[in-house]
Design a protein around this nucleic acid. Structure first.
Lengths: 154, 154
DNA sequence: CTATTACTTCAAGTCAACTTTAAGTCAAGT
DNA sequence: ACTTGACTTAAAGTTGACTTGAAGTAATAG
């Protein structure tokens, strides 16, 4: 059992952020001592998980869903597995970037940007960011291919 | 040579975003045809690079610096190399996350969160997010370890 | 030559993820 | 009993990365 300052100290996360996380439902306090929140030590693990998830590019909302509302992380294994797959692709792309950067850093050719291998890597990145392939021959006006998914109020 | 709509179509990036990118100095147009911007086809590569960088967690400002103000990406090789190293660490962490997620998805033990290997991974994440190790025995008040670097007006 | 249409600018709006501030509360030490 | 100070809330502010909207302009089609 920890109060917010202890949790902050142990996690390295400012108290304001911890309150915010509780407010949006990412972590929970088990009760109060007077006014003061009381946290279980297990939230430290949860915070680590959240931090890791952020690095991986998950939004807080996604993680709230992934980690579940439950006290005991009763995780949706399918969803997590799917995320892991997604992350795996993500990693491959980053690896491509890393290699791309190394190429840029070491290749002293005047225009490494024209190296076909490099360009291929770059294209992959663009494709995944926009979600779909750009310029696939017969796209006309590009109307609006943007679908919003907010998944808020059920 | 491309106008903005061609660039948008080929890249899959909305024109507004392209204008924004130019405004903040991430890309440049080589001139105008009337009002209209004219871009070199090389910015496509640059855009891919930017997309990839974003996935990697770089800010637009960082990338502007990395890619240089020059038309010909006259890149600071040392800086890029450093970034590659950084990215490499990044990848390792993501790999850890992926493995962590897979663990969570498959391990049916009631409390995978107590698996020491898993916990170790999680700690790594927290540490890197906050920039420093949390709770390293004799840290007192955690004063303010946050340094702002804005590098705006020279 | 005018009308259209795709571009332009500039300002304001949005969204996520926080931080900051102001005013209040309460458990604990003197 | 009172002061202290770490906590509390609620609201507003900030930053990065864009998008949207209104009003203007110019290359091209008719």
């Amino acid at each position: 059992m920890l109060d917010i300052s202890e949790l902050s100290r142990k996690s390295g996360i400012p108290a304001s952020k911890l309150r915010y996380y509780e407010e949006v439902g990412l972590i929970r306090s088990v009760g109060r001592n007077g006014l003061r929140r009381v946290f279980e030590t297990s939230v430290l693990t949860r915070l680590s998980l959240i931090a890791l998830g952020q690095v991986a590019g998950f939004s807080l909302a996604e993680m709230r869903d992934m980690l579940g509302t439950q006290r005991q992380p009763e995780i949706d294994r399918e969803a997590v597995s799917a995320k892991a797959d997604l992350l795996d692709r993500h990693i491959n792309e980053l690896t491509a970037l890393r290699d791309g950067l190394r190429h840029v850093a070491t290749c002293s050719a005047p225009s490494h940007l024209e190296c076909p291998t490099f360009q291929r890597l770059m294209r992959i990145a663009l494709a995944r960011q926009t979600g779909r392939k750009p310029e696939q021959q017969k796209r006309l006006t590009q109307q609006n291919s943007r679908a919003k998914q907010k998944g808020s109020k059920p």
